[in-house]
Each structure stands twice: as C-alpha cells, then as structure tokens.
Nucleic acid binder design. Structure first.
Ligand code: ZN
Ligand code: ZN
Ligand code: ZN
Ligand code: ZN
Lengths: 167, 167
DNA sequence: TTATTTATGTAGTGTTATAACCTATATGAA
DNA sequence: TTCATATAGGTTATAACACTACATAAATAA
C-alpha cells in the first residue's frame, strides 16, 4: 500500500540521490551564508544538511539517524535534532509540520519572502515554490488581522498531477 | 515562561468554556450534517466534538483523553484518535499539524472553500479565517502545478497583535 | 593563559500516534 | 426474525517523534 508508507519505509524506496554536484554547490553556498553570519556549520550540521540535499524529498529525524549512522558512528536522536534546530534557524532547512519531516531549502527559492510547499498525499513528493501572489495575499491577511508573520511558509496538501487518478 | 506553555498547561488556564449554548448549537448543526451524509455521530464522537467546541483553542489528543476521562471512564488514546479521524473526515474538526492539536471548525467559516489558521507563536491563540483572496491565489498555484487540492487549510504562524512586543 | 561560550556525548524520559486483535453494536437482506 | 456484513469500540502493546538534564569537549574571547 504505497500510500501508507512511513518515511522510514519510503526512504528505502526513494529515488537515487540527486546529482551530487548540486549538493556540493548547495553546501558551499550554505557555508558562505553561515560564515557571513558568524554561524558555525560544524561537521555534524554539515553532514545533516548534505543528507537532506542528497535525497529527493523530506526525511524524518530518525531517517537521518539511520542514514548518517550507516556511514559512521551512530548519532543519538538529540544530536540530529540539535543539528536540525541550527539549520532551521539559519533557514537552510524547513520543517514540514504536517509530515514530521525536514527538507533542505531549495536554492532556487532562497531569498524568496514566502515559500509554499505543495505536499502530495499520494506519493509524498514535496514541491517548494515561491509564489509572489500567494505571499502578497497572505501578508495582506496577516496585516489586516494585526499578525506579525514569523513563519512565511505554507504547507498545502493535495494530490500531484501523477497521483490524481489513484483512489 | 508563557511562551512555552504546553497544551496541557494552557488547558487548565483556559478561558472559561465558551457559551454552552453556542456549543449546543454547533453540535446540533453537526448532527444534522452527519445525518444528511449518513455518517454516525456516536456518543464518543459527540463527546470529543463537544469538548473541542467547549474550549477556546486547540486541544491535543491526550488533553482530550484527560478531559473526557475526568468526566467518566477513561478512554484509550486510540479511541480518541479514531473519533478525531471521523470528525476530521466530516470536516467538523481540523488538525493543526504545526501544533499536534485539534480544533473544532468554527461555524462561521463552515462551507468556506479554503480556511486559514493564524496561529500565534506567543500565546497559542488560533484564529480561523476564510479569505477568498488567499483561497483564490492558492488554488491558482495549485492549478498551475497540476495539483488537485485536498486540504484547503493553511496554517500560518506568526505573532498576534497582543504578542508583538514580547521577545 | 584562563574564563566563557558553544557544541556534542550520554542516558533517560516525555509526547504523539498507530498496529493488531478481539468484541459489541448497528444495519440491511433473506 | 435470523443471519450476514459492516462499522464502531475495547484492550494491549508498540511505533514514531521529540526533548530534559547533565557531563564533557571544543572553540572563542578576555
Ligand atoms: Zn504500496
Ligand atoms: Zn503524488
Ligand atoms: Zn500557568
Ligand atoms: Zn498571541
């Protein structure tokens, strides 16, 4: 039942790691960002970020424990969570609350004021987009309500084009 | 530290239960909705829905376990989750993924195509709004991307007017 | 250097959600 | 009514996700 697979399960079925050149570029850029802010992209944090860039989709915290543990000494969950906290703080990673999962910020929308994640209920694919229109209307609503936005990230669930027919 | 209050804690400090007449009306309306759809609003489901309508804000699943357990026989978590699944299915309740919490759909926006929840990082207040503009732009993006929306609910975190100064 | 801060290691626990299996109740057809 | 089927709930156990508390190590500042 493909639609009920846990992150854990899906990981083992995941697409092959995307182009490692792209990952390297993303890491290099992240290092620059951290240096400019005086933040320390330590080896652990870097490995977590690399892992997230190295897969096509979100990973759960325990997926990262397993993934990084398989290529060296196993880290405790709290170690992963601490690295994730840092990366989220630096806006290099997003937490997908609706999936209890974490995803590397795509370089293409970095700097965008508001990003939205389209999350497919079917295959779990996550599509990060920067829509100025959505950003604007959301900000307008927030202003009307007197809200000062902190998270400008929207998670929208639905079914991607490929998964429309199923169920 | 007001900003780290658990749902549990906030529950005990919560505003007095809102007007029980309002709750009763909401339940009556929910019953009608279920009847018309051939869905069964059983006593357990009804009690969960009443509890959610009876408080001002979201409740965690285990808050519901405690709350309903205190007024009768304690139910197992799975029982609460099953009731919540039903109520969410009927769109009588929303799950706030970013808070791991559940909130009764407000009657005022019932029937709206897209609702947005403004969740305050400070006080935890949740404001359910129906913004046609946001709904429209979100749907446009979804259409452009070939997504068929299922959840038309957006969770936007920020800081409400009262909590702007803090931190 | 020493003091201070920041990062990580380690153990245990807390919190949220579901699996598996069984029983009871409701509903519909014969 | 009786039987078949579907739906709801009971019970136990466990999976999955996240953090507290405290010790140690490494980096940075004084
Ligand atoms: Zn499958
Ligand atoms: Zn899909
Ligand atoms: Zn208090
Ligand atoms: Zn607030």
């Amino acid at each position: 039942m493909a639609h009920a697979l846990s992150l854990h399960h899906r990981l083992s079925h995941a697409d092959a790691p995307t182009d490692s050149d792209r990952t390297e570029r993303a890491i290099a850029q992240s290092e620059a960002v951290c240096r400019s802010k005086g933040a320390r992209l330590t080896p652990i944090r870097r490995r977590v970020l690399e892992a997230l860039h190295g897969v096509d989709g979100p990973l759960g915290a325990y997926d990262l424990v397993d993934l990084l543990g398989s290529q060296g000494r196993r880290m405790a969950p709290i170690t992963i969570y601490r690295a994730l906290d840092f990366l989220i703080e630096q806006e290099l990673v997003h937490r997908l609350a609706s999936r209890n999962a974490y995803i590397a910020s795509s370089g293409t929308v970095a700097g965008a004021r508001t990003t939205a994640f389209l999350i497919c209920d079917g295959c779990g694919d996550v599509n990060e987009i920067a829509s100025p229109d959505v950003a604007e209307t959301v900000l307008k609503v927030l202003r009307d309500q007197g809200y000062q936005p902190r998270t400008k990230v929207l998670e929208i669930t639905g079914r991607c084009a490929r998964c429309q027919d199923v169920h």
